[in-house]
Design a binder for these strands. Structure first.
Lengths: 367, 367
DNA sequence: CTGAAAGCGCTAACAT
DNA sequence: ATGTTAGCGCTTTCAG
């Protein structure tokens, strides 16, 4: 590998001059810069990032530590954030914790060891104290979940608003026995979503029936089981789903139970996937602005990093806070069968405006 | 940050003894090792990866350069490969090239600068010569596509076999006008898939009708358009899809055209997604063993790297070569309407064995 | 404007 | 078995 010393020998200047020329130092003659650059080009010089990192005590890496890069829209978010950090000459290291605190710690530790410039973290349910301590050492932002013990600002969806809206929609349709199956309350997202469900009920003056809510580990099969149980035991006329994996499981369960949606049961999913347009009558869902969130997170990140700029700096106006999901209406919700008998609601829960963000895609007629 | 020198001062030994103790050098007294480790633990020592990389001339990073981490099963593959490299104490850097040769080069260059230990690359359609030259500098494996100009071994699907099998299945059902819409022949996957289609035809003694094949940029809308065009102009009784994005586009087109599948048209998709079980009658598809491929790739990678082992070494029997996809039969294929009039085929294209890998999932009855 | 020199934290001879 | 020493390639004072 060519080094600045090699180039120095070739051009006939000192290695520090080469370094300055390459870094576009103002106090170097344009002529010298040109000669140095030509030599660098000619010999395929590539700066040694390790040496630089050692010297400046901060590397060109940004960590992306999440439970699972396959889940939710993590891949999309990784891409968006990578784009941001690439624009500042840095690179994104992805690490999957599998929601295991020890793996999370191991990755954070490795990233600290690699002198990562910053970290974006979707925290596990219960980060170890040691992890938290490490996180204090470098600029960190939380991504989809928020952990109170962590000072770092968080870029999250407004889960509560999303589920609240979904539940209110069902309420407005005349449903009174609305079920909720979602993830555990021990993570911020699970808690917020359940809170949204409860708020909608409360605002409609309805009491919560514990039999109608089920929180469960966010795995397909578990969710399918919980869904089935809740449906058969409590016989709701509608169900709100509180997570992407929950939604997947529910879709399976609906298929197995051969449920008529929305005839027998109205359904609102969580997250937005292409298949939801083709699924049965089309699955209404709480659509998450994942790319937007990631973009916001990414540009905030480059702001944090601007103090130590590299290559082609990108400017971005950062703003933390929660992004509101939108309710995407398709064919899976309708008034309940005996909707006419539903007592009127108190408050301003008018029926939803027609055509609101609705998109309906015809599906193939099965042969 | 605590350094080995700090620890040396604390324990009362030289910094090289500390280094040896930490690296479990055999010539260090267990007692000293224990004291050093205790001190390291107590002070939260984390080794500086940059310094180590600078010294040993090779870092703990592995690059993962692909067109788009959202597409295909790249996220799943990234996860599988990350797991492998993590097991050797290394970290995965993901980089999206967007299939743009310059971005690909930029990423490879950065990775070389970071002294990445190895690279897994899904090459763009036409890597720049400079990229190819750089790739010679570090252990590289190609992932899903294969570029002839690259010496590196490749882990790819047996695309030709997959499409061939799909086409043969349709042939066996009695179809004679079978269409193909796939990606460009300029990438290895596109070429292999088209070759599979052609081979099936040839083996059945059928001539190819150019009107029945269409290659197109692998984007949803473009694919939908090409699909529609081919269907309306050539009126095939079945169509084979040559890519995941093509399949997505075709699904859209089928919905728009309100096609009766498999009544009017039999269809075989490419790639396997959950929605395919719920789509119309269930979409038969060429299922790709993505995780297996990535696992093979990953364990081969650690083999390449074993010469420079780190932490908890993982053993793996590497083997390059093409992994065969499996045909996943669902409800989207059936004999053609006028199938009885189809001339018998020459050769051993018997009807498919009943129940072959078939999985049928009931779907919700639309309300 | 450019050169000389120091040093980032670590590893690996080469001494003891 | 442990200490001494010399760099890895780069940035960055400090001199000239």
């Amino acid at each position: 590998m060519t080094t600045i010393k090699d180039l120095a020998g070739i051009v006939g200047v000192s290695h520090s001059t080469v370094a300055r020329a390459l870094n576009d130092h103002p106090a170097i003659t344009p002529a010298v810069k040109a000669r140095v650059r030509a030599a660098a080009e000619a010999h395929g010089y590539i700066a040694n990032a390790a040496a630089r990192a050692l010297r400046v005590q901060s590397g060109a890496l940004v960590g992306f530590v999440v439970p699972d890069i396959e889940e939710n829209d993590m891949a999309a978010m990784a891409k968006a954030i990578a784009e941001c950090v690439n624009a500042t000459g840095r690179q994104l290291v992805v690490a999957c914790s599998g929601d295991a605190p020890e793996r999370e710690l191991a990755h954070v530790r490795a990233l600290v060891g690699a002198r990562a410039a910053a970290l974006v973290l979707m925290p596990s349910e219960n980060p170890l104290p040691e992890t938290l301590a490490l996180l204090g050492r470098l600029p960190t932002v939380q991504l989809v979940r928020r952990v109170a013990a962590l000072a770092a600002e968080a870029f999250v969806f407004d889960d509560e608003a999303g589920i609240q809206e979904a539940t209110a929609h069902l309420l407005a349709l005349g449903h009174r026995r609305i079920g909720y199956v979602g993830g555990s309350e021990t993570v911020s997202t699970g808690a917020a979503r359940l809170a949204g469900y409860r708020r909608a009920l409360r605002e409609a003056g309805l009491a919560e029936d514990p039999a109608l809510v089920s929180t469960v580990a966010p795995h397909g099969p578990a969710a399918a089981g919980a869904f089935r149980l809740l449906f058969e035991a409590a016989r709701p006329s509608a169900i709100v789903l509180g997570g992407p994996r929950i939604t997947l499981g529910a879709a399976e369960a609906v298929a197995e139970l051969r449920l008529n949606v929305p005839g027998e049961l109205s359904l609102v999913g969580f997250g937005d996937r292409a298949w939801m347009r083709w699924w049965g009558p089309g699955l209404s869902t709480v659509a998450l602005p994942a790319r937007e969130l990631a973009q916001a997170c990414g540009s905030h990140l480059v702001d944090l990093l601007r103090a130590v700029p590299r290559q082609g700096e990108a400017e971005g106006q950062a703003h933390a806070g929660a992004l509101a999901p939108g309710l995407m209406l398709r064919g899976s919700t309708a008034p309940p069968l005996r909707g006419a008998t539903a007592p009127p609601l108190r408050g301003a829960t008018a029926p939803p405006p027609a055509g609101q963000a609705a998109r309906k895609v015809p599906r193939p007629r099965p042969g």
